[in-house]
C-alpha cells in the first residue's frame, strides 16, 4: 500500500478498572451524602431526592453530546479514525444517560405531576434527542467502510448535538409542564450541594464508561487492521 490508512492502535493496559471502582465508590458516597444531608422539600417532601439522579443524568448527557460535537468536527477536519471512535463512545454513553434522564423523569413525574408523560416541549425535545442518538448508533451498525461510517456519524452527531441547546432552553422558550431551571435563589443551598456533588460523581462514571467503550472500539479496529494487513500479504 502506498498511502497507509491512519490506523488505530490497540489500547495499552492501564489502571482503568481502578478508576472505575473509584468512580462507583464516589457515586455511592455522593448519593448517601445527599440522602442524609438534604431535608425534605416543603412541597415535594422526600420526592426531592430524585433530584440527585435525574438532574446529574441530564447534565452528563449534555456533556456527552458536547464531546460528540467536538470529536465529530475534529474527525471531519483531520480524518483520524480514533476521533470517530471517541465520538461514537461518547454518543453511546450519552444515549444511556439520555434514556436514564427520561426514565427517572417519568418516575418523578408520576407522583409530582400526576402523569408519567406529557408532550410538552421539554419532554418531547429530550425524546427527540434520544431518538437521534439511537439512530446514530444504528447508523454505525449499517455502514461498513470506516471512513464513510465516520463521515455519516459525524454529520448525524453534529446535528444531534445542536439539539442540546434546544432541549436546555425549551422550558424558557416555550410554555411547558416541566419547570424552569432552578437558580441559586429558587433552590436552597443544601440541594445545590447535593446536586453538584452527584454531578461530579456522574462525570467520573461517564469518563470511565466512555474510556472503556473507546478502548474496546480501538481494540476491535486494531484487530481489523491487522487481519486486513495479513490478508494483503502478511504482517510487516
Amino acid at each position: 500500500m502506498t498511502t497507509a490508512a491512519p490506523t488505530v492502535e490497540a489500547p495499552r493496559p492501564a489502571r482503568w478498572p481502578v478508576f472505575g471502582a473509584v468512580s462507583l465508590a464516589a457515586l455511592v458516597a455522593t448519593q448517601v451524602f445527599s440522602f442524609l444531608t438534604s431535608p425534605p422539600d416543603q412541597n415535594m417532601g422526600q420526592l426531592e431526592k430524585i433530584l440527585y439522579v435525574h438532574v446529574p443524568a441530564a447534565w452528563v448527557m449534555f456533556v456527552c453530546f458536547a464531546i460528540v460535537l467536538v470529536y465529530s468536527l475534529r474527525f471531519l477536519w483531520k480524518g483520524r479514525e480514533d476521533d470517530d471512535l471517541l465520538a461514537a463512545a461518547a454518543a453511546e454513553v450519552g444515549a444511556i444517560f439520555n434514556g436514564l434522564t427520561l426514565v427517572l423523569g417519568m418516575i418523578w413525574g408520576k407522583p409530582a405531576w400526576g402523569v408519567w408523560w406529557v408532550w410538552d416541549a421539554r419532554l418531547t425535545s429530550t425524546l427527540v434527542l434520544f431518538l437521534v442518538f439511537v439512530g446514530y448508533l444504528a447508523l454505525r451498525a449499517f455502514v461498513e467502510d470506516p471512513q464513510r461510517r465516520g463521515q455519516w456519524s459525524a454529520a448525524v452527531g453534529i446535528l444531534g448535538a445542536l439539539n442540546v441547546p434546544i432541549v436546555w432552553m425549551s422550558v424558557t422558550w416555550w410554555r411547558t409542564l416541566h419547570q424552569m431551571p432552578s437558580s441559586m435563589r429558587s433552590m436552597a443551598k443544601i440541594y445545590w450541594v447535593g446536586m453538584f456533588a452527584n454531578f461530579g460523581a456522574f462525570l467520573l462514571v461517564m469518563a470511565y464508561f466512555i474510556r472503556r467503550r473507546y478502548d474496546a472500539a480501538c481494540t476491535v479496529r486494531a484487530a481489523e487492521h491487522a487481519s486486513q494487513a495479513a490478508a494483503l500479504g502478511g504482517l510487516d
Binding site: P40, Q42, M44, A112, L177, S182, S186, M187, A188
Partner: peptide
Amino acid sequence: LMVKHSNEYHPPKPGEKPEEM
C-alpha cells in the same frame, strides 16, 4: 388534573415537619 411544580426547592420552615406537610 396535573400539578405544575415550580423551580422552588426549600426545606420546610422551622416547626413544620414533613409528615404534617
